[in-house]
Design a protein around this nucleic acid. Structure first.
Lengths: 355, 355
DNA sequence: ATATCGGTTGTAAACGTTTCCACAGGTCAA
DNA sequence: TTGACCTGTGGAAACGTTTACAACCGATAT
């Protein structure tokens, strides 16, 4: 965190030109293409960023912290952002949210953070979640960590360790949902939504397999529909799911990887003439605002993103004032919100049902 | 936009101390309390902010623009934020969103913007929408405008003129909704939601009165329910509305000031045993994502916040490169999204119905 | 041949700020 | 009274950077 950053003088020496030429090259002044190439190469070698003369005490005094969220649309991250904002304001820090379009690379994020040099940075879901090239992602994260206190929210990615990584156990929601459904008597439970490029999705998928095992549920590869994460994904997933099975092999319950998928599933079920929860129990995930207003209202899992955002900021600010990463080790329980979409217990359980 | 900002030297002269003392006073070094007071007084008088030594070309080169949104929760602003992000990315600018808790004053925003000195600033809904003290709000806006190109989105506030103020006509949605409902034969139309402290709300309320006049609708002060802007506001509004009138005086249609209010209204109507659109037509506003999934799906007005955000950024960037405010004068049509919640035409229109 | 010109470069001076250093003045104990 | 030791202060140097200025180089025009 305290190593000397290279200055324009270092770059000039490395490139064999004057500092004026380096400055012009960086700011788009008129330089010959050969000089520009030399400067760029040298800057790249030294990992130089202009603007470091904004020295530390200033950024400290300014009390800016930066947050990068993987999505603004997603209600989960929206709620988290509110928590982040609230806690930052409470503790006197100003919050700057870097807003990027989908699919921005981690290198871009790192470059921008190093340009701005806030007092600390918060990475939520991004960019550990999806990465084109793990190696450059790793390097970028390292560069950020060297320059400022960093707290990442989300499941850790193998080989990419952050100083502080805080996460609600991403499989817990699956376990709670499966426990609830099995308690109600379901043993044919489908998993709808998600995709293999998203880390949280595969974690939940794996948790699903474990729970299927634990409760001796029906093991059927066709019960897993990784169709995506939006409303259409739910519609598509259900139509494939039910199209692929004879009526008597239909699952009796669906766990949807998020509430949008659950919504799509509910619509498609309705379209196909199946009732929820009569013919199919349904559990969503995220406790999105609209779930309480659906008919039937949706049983879902609250991951408490607001509190999680708050706590991540608190952790970050403690790290900033301590000058070193602080282990916070707060655990986040997900809570099951029972509503109408699972109905009553399935059938009557007799001794024959027991293993 | 180009006046000299006061420097530490000015403050030192004004306070009658050395620049070193000023610097120490600002960064929390050891200074006597009397010096500190002198420095603070001088800084206040001159409106001094440290950090201006980050000279103009840097902020230009970095291509940071800042956006301040009045709310992150509101789906309207969320969509606008996406548009802003997209356009900023497209044109190579980095977008920083200042995230504040509800009710932050305009002075705070101005101070932060002047600290960061981005290449340009975008104010959406905030802080022209609600202001505690119009005079300080005005002064703060002026300070921002002196320091950087500024584009404000939202209805202008009397006495507070921005260099560039871009807005979708906030009354147009009311006019389109009323025209649609009247075309369907309704003449007893209620206005539910909003509150007098929000500028956009009173503009729409006034537009409602005008349209009531134009179409010779029933004029009834109890048809106007300024109960707020969330789901509960809709529930409350409808229960008062219907509680206050004999059955034959019930309105036949409701315009809700936004989709959340419409959702609440729909629920309350359902609870009271009235069907939509059978017993009551309903129009919302904002075309929030969930409206298409309601049963019945909600007729609403799309204000095109995404495009509006894009265009505001385009305008801002043109102003930045031109070095002066650019009039863009793009108009934003709201569009009526006809769905199920208004049903078919009300009754059969005979010659007697005509005025 | 010389003059002119556009493009590229380095030197050095700015910029607004922090920080090192030395000094002035005060307090306190011997 | 002296010496030691604080505290607050200003001068000046340093920081990393941009930029005005002058010099240089090669090419083209006369």
């Amino acid at each position: 965190m305290n190593e000397k950053q290279p200055t324009i003088v270092d770059v000039a020496r490395e490139a064999g030109v004057s500092i004026a030429t380096v400055s012009r090259a960086m700011t788009g002044g008129s330089v010959s293409s050969v000089s520009r190439r030399k400067v760029e190469a040298a800057a790249e070698r030294l990992n130089y960023r202009p603007g470091y003369y904004r020295s530390d005490p200033i950024k400290e005094a300014k009390h800016f912290i930066a947050a990068v969220l993987s999505s603004q649309t997603n209600p989960y991250y929206a709620a988290m952002c509110e928590g982040i904002t609230a806690e930052a304001a409470r503790s006197g820090y100003k919050l700057l949210v870097f807003s990027y379009p989908e699919g921005t690379s981690c290198e871009t994020v790192a470059a921008d953070l190093l340009d701005l040099r806030p007092a600390g940075a918060l990475l939520a879901g991004f960019p550990t979640e999806r990465s084109v090239n793990p190696e450059t992602t790793r390097a970028s994260l390292m560069r950020i960590q060297e320059a400022m206190p960093l707290v990442a929210i989300g499941p850790p990615v193998e080989g990419i360790e952050c100083a502080r990584q805080t996460l609600p156990d991403p499989s817990q929601c699956v376990r709670k949902a499966m426990a609830h459904l099995c308690m109600l008597g379901h043993r044919r439970i489908a998993f709808v939504g998600g995709d293999r490029s998203a880390r949280f999705s595969t974690i939940r998928e794996n948790a699903y397999y474990e729970e299927v095992q634990r409760y001796s549920c029906r093991r059927d590869p066709m019960y897993v529909m990784l169709t995506g994460t939006n409303v259409q994904a739910g519609e598509l997933g259900v139509s494939i799911l039910l199209g692929n099975h004879a009526r008597e092999d239909h699952p009796t319950a669906i766990f949807a990887i998020n509430d949008l998928v659950a919504l799509g599933a509910m619509r498609q079920l309705h379209r196909m003439g199946l009732s929820v929860p009569g013919d199919m129990a349904l559990v969503g995930c995220d406790n999105a605002f609209f779930t309480q207003y659906l008919t039937p209202s949706l049983t879902t899992i609250d991951l408490h993103p607001y509190e999680h955002g708050r706590s991540a900021v608190a952790e970050l600010i403690m790290s900033i004032s301590a000058g070193k990463p602080i282990a916070f080790n707060q655990s986040f329980e997900s809570t099951l919100i029972v509503r109408e979409s699972c109905g009553a217990a399935l059938g009557v359980r007799t001794f024959e049902d027991a293993p």
